[in-house]
Design a binder for these strands. Structure first.
Length: 948
RNA sequence: GCUCUGGUGGUGGAAUGGUAGACACGAGGGACUUAAAAUCCCUUGUCCGCAAGGACGUGUGGGUUCAAGUCCCACCCGGAGUACCA
């Protein structure tokens, strides 16, 4: 009988479903193991072959762990809220709930065909009220907590209020806490809440009435419509993720991720150590408009306002400061600008304000700026230095003001050159060498070397000088040692429909949270879910979107009276809200009383293995870690880090094929390797489904599109050879491979094996079906091997092959190298086939070890061998080391007076045995040439040297 | 610019410091067949040679080692992340 995958696969899929084979319990004496995939966006395009790559890898690992006796949690769900789902709905003109439902059904159908071992009873969907109820719940907790820097954890806001009440925390609100009324207190607390409402600069398009992402704006105009976009402060919800910056850096030490991904996160968080120093404003006698102030060297009291706080990572270079630069948004600009410079400064600030991020980034090389007319005092040297404004200083980083050290910072240098400002060298490679100005640029940004021309730190190494300056600054009370992070708080509002509603209503313009018991706050129906033109988010169209505080329910918008019935928040949460904590919900997905039970999290702890793309390095993986750490502070999660080990699967790129159309004759197509083809033709994308191994199916090509019906060809060796290129997989390039087609043609097991065989999981690679036949052949051979089996006891050769394979495959799986596992199976089957009829005893174990990779055929064969239960409940076989003793092997290594032979031998072997082994080895015999080995040198491990 | 990765046949890719190129594809040859499909067998890094055999080979140049694709140093080229971040 032939290998009929089309009968076997549905049969066992049905069996697994009916027997709940993959159901996973939270009560098990077995050790736990949690394997998680990044859940997909159910987009309208369905799955392509790139999606299942990571799923197959994690499925193999889950099945393997199960066979090793673990209770494995391996769930799946859908990240169904967010922009892609909404965009698709808008394009097709259907309600996002309907399209999402349809897309999920399609994904599920495709996933089921591949034979994954997901426990579907734990499925979660981020757009399901029973799920987003808990997303909203976490938001309320974030709103009601602040980050206590002394305790270094999140604490209830009520705790902060107590501290303020007792005066243990100083109130910086401009007014003592005791004198504030209820509203003022709430406003003040907003500066502390982990979820807070604040004015944030955004790309606002008045015409479209929405905030746009940076990539939706080009040259100050919206991509869609070409309307002007301005940067504007808008009230938005944000998460104070920056409070966790240090813990997010530290936590990377504890997890088993790739160095590159850890590095991506470290760069993103951007920790830099340095100092904050106040530079006081100098008195300007001419204008006499500025408050007089004192600044003397060595003054011990903090210097009175006004002064500028700057941040620097190089306090040692303070002696080289020749000017200061403020960002255009700096609040003190108007205050300090002299009348003579006023017009110029205002024009510059206005110009800078209207520049988009994009323009600013594109014109990095261009130096621009303006002098304010004001001067500051270098608090260390007492020098008077001019204050400039320039947009190379960013408002969002540090304090938006810098001390410029043009000799040792490339940007300050360019600025100084452009505006003819002085440049003073303060760092040199040698303590006494003061190099000539032209060489400064070479040692620019140098963190090694010595301080020169630098007062009390002259002659010190840079590191010592940094410490000495900070110490002095702290002693003088004009600054302090500090750490800065690049990580910004996460903007959490979206003026969109398809997302989680905020559990927030507004009383007197101040946000209040809904009572927790009233969750979920369900997404209302609206007449029109598209972004609105009148500036309001789509929820502004909802007829029923007001909060009746007394009766604790949602009521008609028209009833808002601002005394008992209040407006609800109109924006929705962003895509990452629902995906930040979904892994926790899988632990206890049906719980109606809590996000998850303490018992569930105590059992599962955290995710042992997380598989997904590295493109989430600066998004989801940061947010989820933040989310988890916050819940940890609340005592809800068991571990600080949510994802212990993380494997990034490489992206599968498309491999496009081209035909070459003659420039003169539109119906003539020239094969790739015909001389002159490059000059005389233009490449055209051709559907990869009508090309086999780069050979074009001419008939199918003619039928493909009407315009090619009359196509003629210039062939080589009677065939048309297509060109190819690696590109993104996309419909427009006709290089999309749909997994269903491959399942139909070769079966799911072949697809699974082939996706693994393609190369290392972590590596990006183009999709190419070239080798799939080889994998298919392998399964047919495997099938045949079982058909020809015998019940006689196993012979030694077969056992050796089996045990070698068990060892290799076990090692391969443990180090996540599935491509070599597949190769090792192929070797094993080839070896066994060559031996003739193989004992069932051997095949029994072979079926088990191959089942994680090709579960359907393994299940079938396992049953054919007479087992009742599923192969999924079998036990992973162990190997017998006795069977694996390696053959003696000798080879010559050098001739320098003496010949050495190196042998690979089992460990623990003695002198005589080694000599005997050399004599027995064919190569050894040849090199000994009848002589006796003189000496055996043992080196560590199993290698020994024999000197002849 | 900085950081991280990687560079091995015609192709995808194997190699705890120990016979480089496993396994697979492709290609060439052969068997079976009226023929095709399917299946099976042989060859396949490069160069020299009829052959036996030999020489050279993991981006380049050095180094460590009895032994280097693997470790160290410098450089070249690709891929990714990030960037007026002070």
């Amino acid at each position: 009988m032939d290998y009929k995958y089309s009968e076997i696969e549905p049969k066992w899929q049905k069996y697994w479903r009916e027997h709940h084979t993959y159901r996973c319990s939270n009560n098990s004496p077995k050790p736990h193991f949690y394997v998680l995939d990044m859940f997909p966006y159910p987009s309208g395009a369905g799955l392509h072959v790139g999606h299942p790559l990571g799923y197959i890898a994690s499925d193999i690992f889950s099945r393997y762990k199960r066979l090793r006796g673990f209770n494995v949690l391996h769930p799946m769900g859908y990240d169904a809220y967010g922009l892609p789902a909404e965009q698709y709905a808008i394009q097709t003109g259907q309600h996002p709930a309907i399209t999402t439902e349809k897309n999920i059904a399609r994904y599920r159908e495709q996933l089921d065909k591949i034979g994954f071992s997901f426990d579907w009873e734990r499925e979660v969907r981020t757009c399901d009220p029973s799920y987003y109820r808990w997303t909203q719940w976490v938001f309320i907790q974030l709103f009601n907590h602040y980050y206590d820097k002394d305790l270094d954890k999140a604490m209830p806001i009520s705790h902060l209020m107590e501290l303020l009440e007792k005066g243990e925390v100083e109130c910086g609100g401009g007014k003592p806490w005791a004198d504030m009324d209820e509203g003022e207190r709430r406003d003040y607390l907003m500066n502390y809440r982990l979820a807070y409402l604040a004015d944030i600069p955004v790309n606002w398009c008045p015409e479209l009435g929405t905030v746009l992402a940076n990539d939706e704006v080009v040259n100050g105009l919206s991509v869609r419509g070409g309307y002007p976009v301005e940067r504007r402060l808008m009230r938005q919800w944000s998460l104070r993720i920056s409070a966790y910056a240090q813990r997010l850096v530290d936590g990377l030490e504890e997890v088993d991720w790739t160095d590159s991904l850890k590095e991506i996160q470290r760069n993103w968080i951007g920790r830099s150590e340095g100092a904050a120093i106040w530079f006081p404003l100098a008195v300007d006698q001419k204008s006499n408009m500025l408050p007089a102030m004192q600044c003397q060297m060595g003054q011990m009291e903090p210097i009175a306002e006004p002064s500028f706080e700057i941040f620097t990572t190089r306090p040692d270079t303070v002696f080289g400061v020749t000017f200061m630069v403020l960002c255009p948004e700096h609040e003190m600009i108007a205050q300090i600008t002299t009348p003579g410079q006023k017009a110029e400064v205002e024009a510059y600030v206005a110009w800078a304000k209207n520049r988009s991020e994009r323009e600013r980034k594109a014109e990095v090389k261009k130096v621009s700026g303006v002098f304010t007319g004001a001067f500051a005092v270098n608090p260390i040297t007492g020098d008077r230095i001019p204050i400039w404004v320039s947009d190379y200083v960013l408002a969002g980083y540090g304090t938006g003001a810098i001390m410029a050290v043009p000799a040792h910072d490339s940007r300050d240098f360019a600025f100084a050159r452009h505006f003819h400002l002085p440049i003073r060298q303060v760092v040199a490679p040698e303590p006494d060498a003061v190099s000539d100005p032209d060489t400064w640029t070479e040692s620019m940004d140098a963190k090694t070397g010595y301080s020169v021309n630098s007062g009390f730190v002259t002659g010190m190494r840079v590191k010592e000088a940094m410490k000495a300056v900070i110490d002095r600054v702290e002693a003088m009370g004009i600054g302090y040692r500090t750490v800065n992070y690049r990580l910004r708080d996460a903007i959490f509002s979206r003026q969109r429909y398809w997302g989680e509603p905020f559990p927030i209503y507004y009383k007197g313009n101040r946000p209040y949270t809904l009572p927790e018991e009233c969750l979920p706050l369900e997404l209302p129906e609206v007449g029109d879910f598209k972004p609105t033109a009148n500036g309001e988010p789509p929820l502004g169209n909802a007829a029923k979107w007001a909060w009746d505080e007394a009766n604790r329910r949602v009521v008609e918008t028209s009833k808002i009276d601002n005394s008992t019935i209040f407006p609800l928040e109109l924006s929705t949460m962003p895509g990452f809200a629902g995906s930040s904590g979904y892994y926790l919900r899988y632990m206890d997905p049906l719980n109606d009383n809590a996000y998850f039970s303490p018992e569930a999290v105590a059992y599962w702890q955290n995710v042992d293995l997380y598989v997904g793309g590295a493109e989430h390095g600066t998004g989801h993986l940061i947010y989820a870690r933040f989310w988890n750490k916050f819940l940890f502070d609340l005592g809800l999660t068991a571990k600080q880090e949510p994802f212990q080990k993380l494997v990034n699967q490489g992206m599968i790129q498309g491999r496009s094929n081209f035909v070459y159309r003659s420039k003169e004759d539109n119906n003539l197509f020239v094969s790739k390797n015909i001389p002159g083809r490059e000059q005389n033709t233009v490449p055209i994308h051709v559907d990869i489904n009508i090309v086999d191994n780069d050979i074009l199916d001419i008939e199918k090509f003619r039928q493909w599109r009407p315009e090619f019906a009359e196509a003629r060809f210039e062939l080589e060796d009677g065939r048309y050879v297509c060109g190819w290129e690696v590109e993104k997989m996309s419909k427009s390039m006709f290089n999309v491979q749909n997994p269903d087609d491959l399942v139909a043609r070769y079966g799911a097991d072949t697809l699974r094996l082939y996706e693994m065989f393609l190369g290392p999981v972590e590596q990006a690679k183009p999709w190419d079906t070239k080798g799939i036949e080889g994998v298919f052949r392998f399964l047919k051979k495997l099938w045949k091997l079982f058909e020809n089996r015998t019940d006689a006891p196993a012979d030694k050769a077969a056992l050796k092959s089996l045990h070698q394979t068990i060892k290799k495959v076990t090692d391969d799986i443990e180090r996540f190298s599935f491509n070599t596992s597949v190769s090792n199976f192929m070797v094993c089957v080839n070896e066994l086939s060559a031996l003739g009829a193989v004992s069932s005893e051997v095949l029994d174990k072979l079926a088990v070890i191959i089942s994680p990779f090709a579960p359907h055929i393994a299940e079938e064969l396992y049953h054919q061998l007479g087992h009742d239960g599923s192969v999924c409940d079998a036990e992973w076989p162990t190997y017998d080391p006795q069977l694996l003793v390696e053959d003696t092997f000798a080879y010559p290594v050098s001739f320098n007076g003496k010949l050495r032979l190196t042998l690979t031998l089992p460990a623990g072997i003695g002198q005589e045995e080694a000599v005997a082994a050399v004599k027995a080895d064919p190569i050894g015999q040849k090199w000994l040439d009848g002589k006796e080995p003189k000496r055996v040198i043992f080196v560590p491990k199993k290698i020994i040297n024999v000197v002849i």
